[in-house]
């Protein structure tokens, strides 16, 4: 493997390094613990959802409804606080997220609806449900002090949310690379027929994948609602692009069968540090969009052009 190929292989690390270098040169105090922990905390929301999305993309599925699940789970967690108490309500929020994922899984696996269409539909449905439950008004939580304690910074850099994210990514890495279930996921994603012939049930794997993605979108939503002490039906509507960008920048292929947890970690950190650095420099939001979009497109083009492979129709999955 020559130098170029090595750089391409570890491009996430290279890009992350370059981003951090530029950011620390341009933004004074960027590498300070407070700035980093803030950026990490912001990135953790995208990151938690990206963990679920990584699993789904590896299994050659996609979930467009994560933003709506995020809002719905947060609303459930806040609305049930008066009747159940804070922590049981948070659990209920997580269950709502997993249930949303199960609905997606049911549509895709049992009713054989294309995942893109199915989650497009549930994106509308969950978002509508969120508006319905709340009358399109933000719902306040019961304990305002909880959000303060949740946002506390531990060990100089981690908030609860970012610690959960880092822990979950490392667990996902072990799960994907060291366990049978992880290998099965890749098998289903690269060739569902072959996986089936080897005794893996693609339907079951995909179904569980959707529940997993729903659960993590729900977790991110519950944490967001608890730290802001609010459940809002408009939460998470702009998250989808950032999540897909983070996962794809991390080298996970949308065509399935390839991806890694550490890549996603790199992707999330890159997007988070970019956003934080640009905000500190007061770059207008729309210029930030252009930068994020350009990085996404550049990386994907690089991915397609550098590595030789069947590319004429792979874009639509038509070669199978």
């Amino acid at each position: 493997m020559n130098l170029g190929a090595t750089i391409v292989r570890f491009r996430v690390a290279v890009i992350l390094g370059l981003t951090l270098l530029c950011a620390s040169l341009l933004v004074p105090g960027f590498l300070g613990a407070t700035t980093l922990s803030l950026g990490l905390d912001r990135g953790a929301t995208v990151g938690l959802i990206a963990i679920g999305m990584t699993v789904l993309l590896i299994a050659r599925q996609i979930d467009l409804s994560v933003g709506s699940t995020f809002a719905l789970a947060g609303i459930v967690a806040v609305m049930l606080q008066p009747s159940l108490g804070i922590w049981p309500a948070a659990m209920a929020g997580l269950i709502a997220g997993a249930a949303a994922g199960a609905i997606n899984g049911l549509l895709v696996v049992t009713f054989k609806v294309n995942p893109l269409v199915a989650t497009l539909a549930t994106m509308l449905i969950f978002r509508s449900a969120a508006h319905w439950l709340t009358d399109s008004q933000p719902v306040p939580g019961t304990d305002i002090m909880l959000s303060v304690s949740l946002s506390k910074i531990h060990l100089g850099i981690f908030t609860l949310r970012s610690a959960l994210f880092i822990g979950a990514v490392l667990l996902l890495h072990v799960w994907l690379t060291r366990t049978v279930a992880g290998r099965n996921l890749f098998a289903v994603g690269s060739n569902a027929e072959a996986a089936k012939a080897s005794g893996i049930s693609p339907g079951r794997t995909v179904f569980l994948g959707f529940i997993f993605a729903g659960l993590f979108a729900g977790l991110a939503g519950v944490l967001q609602s608890l730290t802001t002490n609010t459940g809002s039906p408009v939460f998470g509507s702009e998250l989808l692009v950032a999540v897909i960008a983070a996962v794809v920048v991390g080298g996970t292929r949308i065509e399935g069968g390839r991806g890694s947890a550490l890549g996603t970690l790199g992707g999330v950190l890159t997007i988070a540090s970019l956003t934080t650095a640009m905000e500190f420099q007061s770059v207008p939001a729309y210029v930030q969009q252009v930068v994020a979009g350009c990085i996404l497109i550049l990386l994907v083009v690089l991915d397609r052009t550098v590595r030789p492979g069947p590319r004429s129709h792979a874009a639509t999955g038509g070669t199978h």
Binding site: V241, Y286, I297, V301
Partner: peptide
């Protein structure tokens, strides 16, 4: 990007959409 480079249409159009929207906003000052 989709036809010749072979990028997944979802990713390509999502990315290009983000870029175009940003450029259009920047051109009129948002």
């Amino acid at each position: 990007l989709v036809g010749y480079v072979g990028i997944n249409p979802i990713i390509a159009t999502l990315g290009i959409g983000t870029i175009v929207l940003g450029i259009v906003q920047a051109s009129v000052g948002g």
